[in-house]
Each structure stands twice: as structure tokens, then as C-alpha cells.
Simulated scan of single mutants.
Amino acid sequence: MFYEAFLAGFWSSLGSTIGKLTGAEYIVGDSYVIWAALLIVMVLVNTWGCRHYLRSLDAASDSVTPTVVSAATSYVLSGLIGVMFFDEGASVRWWIGATLIIIGLALVARPRNKQKFT
């Protein structure tokens, strides 16, 4: 279940990256063929990510854990891709915020101990 949810986040961030490339003048230029091909690939990649997400939901006992794993994976990978490939700036404050979001998501997804009160 965790593997499928991780793959869902991975494919989601890759789909976003391909979507960003459709607007990049240095990639597309004036070619509608390249633009359309990138859009088709983006839809296919996002569909593949949805497939993995649905499989993770099917394997899980609740919907929170796959959602958290997928969202955290997508968030971190999108940030790393932006920094490494698109020369986007990510300050220390951004990374601290990303870490806090992931910690919060992990707290939401953790298993709860049910205590019986008599």
C-alpha cells in the first residue's frame, strides 16, 4: 500500500513537471505538435498516477494513509524538481514549512490506539 501511494505521488509530480514544460518556450517553441505531445504525455502520466493511488486506496484499511503518503511524496518531489531542473529558489523557510507539513500529515495518518473506558 505504501509503495503504491509513493508511486502515485511520484507520477503526480512528474505529471506536473511535464505540464510545466508545455509552457516552456525553449522546449515547445512554435511547434503545436510538441505542445500537443507533451499534453498527451501529461494526461497519460497523471492517469497512471491515479491508477496507483486507487490501488493504494484499495489495499489500505482507511483512506487517510494513502492520501498522506501520496501528498507528501508529491510535495517533496515537486519541490526538488523545481529546484534542480527549473532553477527555482527554495529558501530555508520553504524547506522548514515543507517539513512541518509532512510531519503534520504523518501525525494525521498515524494509527490510533483505541482505549476502552469502563
Results as ranks from 00 to 15, higher is better:
residue 56 S to K: 04
residue 102 I to W: 04
residue 15 G to S: 13
residue 58 D to I: 10
residue 45 V to D: 00
residue 38 L to G: 00
residue 105 L to W: 02
residue 66 P to N: 05
residue 117 F to E: 14
residue 18 I to G: 03
residue 61 S to M: 11
residue 90 A to S: 15
residue 60 A to H: 05
residue 87 D to W: 04
residue 32 Y to A: 10
residue 108 V to P: 03
residue 11 W to M: 10
residue 26 Y to P: 03
residue 112 R to A: 11
residue 12 S to G: 14
residue 106 A to G: 08
residue 40 I to Q: 10
residue 55 R to E: 13
residue 114 K to V: 10
residue 82 G to M: 06
residue 49 G to N: 02
residue 68 V to T: 02
residue 42 M to E: 11
residue 77 L to R: 00
residue 115 Q to A: 08
residue 54 L to V: 06
residue 90 A to G: 15
residue 99 T to Y: 04
residue 96 I to P: 06
residue 10 F to I: 12
residue 13 S to V: 01
residue 111 P to E: 09
residue 49 G to S: 06
residue 98 A to Y: 07
residue 67 T to F: 09
residue 88 E to S: 08
residue 61 S to G: 12
residue 97 G to P: 00
residue 76 V to C: 06
residue 74 S to W: 03
residue 78 S to Y: 06
residue 69 V to Y: 00
residue 48 W to Q: 08
residue 55 R to N: 13
residue 35 W to R: 11
residue 62 D to V: 08
residue 64 V to P: 03
residue 72 A to N: 07
residue 60 A to G: 05
residue 78 S to H: 06
residue 29 G to A: 10
residue 30 D to K: 12
residue 48 W to S: 07
residue 33 V to T: 13
residue 116 K to G: 07
residue 75 Y to C: 08
residue 40 I to R: 09
residue 72 A to Q: 03
residue 88 E to W: 05
residue 69 V to S: 01
residue 95 W to T: 09
residue 2 F to N: 14
residue 79 G to E: 01
residue 78 S to R: 03
residue 11 W to C: 05
residue 30 D to Q: 11
residue 43 V to F: 15
residue 96 I to G: 12
residue 51 R to I: 15
residue 9 G to T: 03
residue 62 D to R: 11
residue 118 T to Q: 04
residue 46 N to L: 12
residue 24 A to V: 13
residue 66 P to C: 05
residue 39 L to C: 12
residue 2 F to K: 08
residue 96 I to E: 13
residue 95 W to K: 11
residue 105 L to P: 01
residue 21 L to N: 00
residue 13 S to W: 00
residue 49 G to M: 03
residue 93 R to S: 08
residue 90 A to W: 15
residue 64 V to F: 11
residue 113 N to G: 09
residue 61 S to P: 09
residue 113 N to C: 06
residue 70 S to T: 06
residue 118 T to M: 01
residue 38 L to W: 02
